[in-house]
Design a binder for these strands. Structure first.
Length: 382
RNA sequence: GCCGAGAUGGCCGAGUGGUUAAUGGCAGCAGACUGUAAAUCUGCCACGCAACGCGUUACGGAGGUUCGAAUCCUUCUCUCGGCA
């Protein structure tokens, strides 16, 4: 059965001026305390692409992700279970959150068919046929042994027409009930996922359905899904501004798939505790790097001879050790180390941003922090 | 010296009379990426303009055949292989 006690969320900060919903807090899992706000790096296939757990440890994320669909398909959840669970298998002993496969319903839409029972997938690896139901998603996640388990949802494309969105939402609620009724391991906590696109009334209706289920058996946290999937940024922000505060305050709130620095800051201001995103690692591999003075593309010719560190204000291994010219060279040369060093930096920057926001909240200087952080992004670095 | 093969845009390399300013790849110059089918994808990449169009110069050099040539002919230069 799921935990009878929710991950109790302790709010640790008082209300910040101009951003009353923003909050610093924490909750405990078997594999460690999660201090929020927190950015969670994505490690879909049992690895945060390009970085070792030791390097990750130095970066210091509170939680990392794994993926149900991908790990269930390869190497297989039962194998991972036999080998001691995902923590042992991948050598990461901090908290792990596993996504349910709901996003793959969206991103692999050409290879699946949704029915009430679940989702029939054709493997993106070899074309073989698989079926992901809420129960199967829970089974995989139980085998993986993650700390935070996501309910299987249908992640609809942004801008889906309202009637289809409503049908999808209703199914996600029915799937949520089935996810909830599936027995997880004792240490695992189930998060519910709210859908509804950018329609506030649909979001609220869906939340009410979730809270009705929550009243019977509490969920351990609440996620906002189905954003940053193609809808205009203003619509996403408007939705967050109005909706996040409606989520129960006594448990973690998780905004799924969001990860630009601007979006993180905005989300924190709306009261979001957890974020995850592939962007920092993917962009790192492509040379797009975040710095305190703006974004840069390290591939650009202007960095070819720069002896400067990537970001003089950053203390990550990459910035402590290497010049821009070297990072430029590695990426140009197609060296694997480019991915590693760039990922270390972008993750440090992103995780560091949420950590700094947390500190600012705890020290009652969040508005100033937010203002200064935004100022830094206004100019693309010279 | 003789015989053979070949010289194409920064490099490699298609193309053997006409939708060819010239396929591809690489290099180069930029851009995109938000619960990862992404070490991926996209655009540009002869020169000049009053530029989604026009002009000029281009397939080793020179000359020729033809309405029309990178593509055919002659010759020169160079490169590679073989024989001396």
């Amino acid at each position: 059965m799921p935990l009878s006690q929710p991950f109790r969320f302790h709010r640790e900060s008082s209300s910040a001026e101009g951003a009353p919903e923003a909050r610093a807090g924490s909750f405990s899992t078997r594999h460690g305390i999660v201090a929020t706000p927190a950015f969670m790096p994505v490690g879909t296939q049992g690895t945060v692409k390009g970085v070792t757990p030791a390097q990750l440890m130095e970066i210091g994320p509170q939680v990392i992700l794994g993926n149900t669909y991908h790990l269930g398909l390869r190497p297989g959840d039962e194998l991972v279970a036999r080998l001691g669970g995902l923590h042992v298998f991948m050598g990461w002993h901090g908290p792990i959150l596993t996504d349910s496969g709901g996003f793959q319903v969206f991103s692999l839409s050409s290879m699946r068919k949704i029915t009430e029972e679940g989702v029939a997938f054709q493997s993106h690896i070899d074309g073989s046929r698989h079926f992901l139901s809420p129960e199967r998603s829970m089974e995989i996640q139980r085998n993986l042994g993650s700390d935070i388990v996501m309910a299987l949802d249908e992640c609809p494309a942004g801008r889906l027409e309202r009637s289809k969105l409503e049908a999808s939402m209703a199914r996600t609620t029915r799937w949520l009930k089935r996810s909830r009724d599936y027995p997880l391991a004792e240490h695992q906590g189930l998060f519910a996922i709210n859908q509804g696109g950018t329609h506030l009334d649909l979001r609220q209706r869906h939340l009410q359905e979730i809270l009705d289920l929550d009243a019977q058996t509490p969920f351990q946290g609440f996620a906002v899904g189905g954003l940053s999937v193609g809808e205009p940024k203003e619509e996403m922000n408007a939705t967050l501004a109005q909706f996040v505060r409606a989520l129960p305050a006594d448990r973690p709130r998780y905004l799924m798939g969001v990860g630009t620095p601007e979006d993180l800051l905005f989300g924190i201001e709306q009261g979001v505790d957890l974020f995850d995103c592939v962007l920092p690692t993917r962009e790192a591999r492509h040379g797009r790097l975040l710095t305190s003075r703006g974004r840069i593309n390290i591939k650009n010719a202007r960095h070819k001879e720069s002896a400067e560190p990537l970001d003089p204000e950053c203390s990550c291994y990459t910035c402590r050790t290497f010049s821009r010219a070297y990072l430029h060279h590695l990426l140009r040369a197609g060296e694997l180390l480019a991915s590693t060093l760039n990922s270390i930096h972008n993750l440090s920057y992103t995780v560091g941003l949420t950590r700094a926001a947390r500190l600012a909240l705890l020290e009652n200087r969040f508005p100033d922090f937010a203002r200064r952080t935004r100022e830094n992004w206004q100019t693309e670095e010279p």
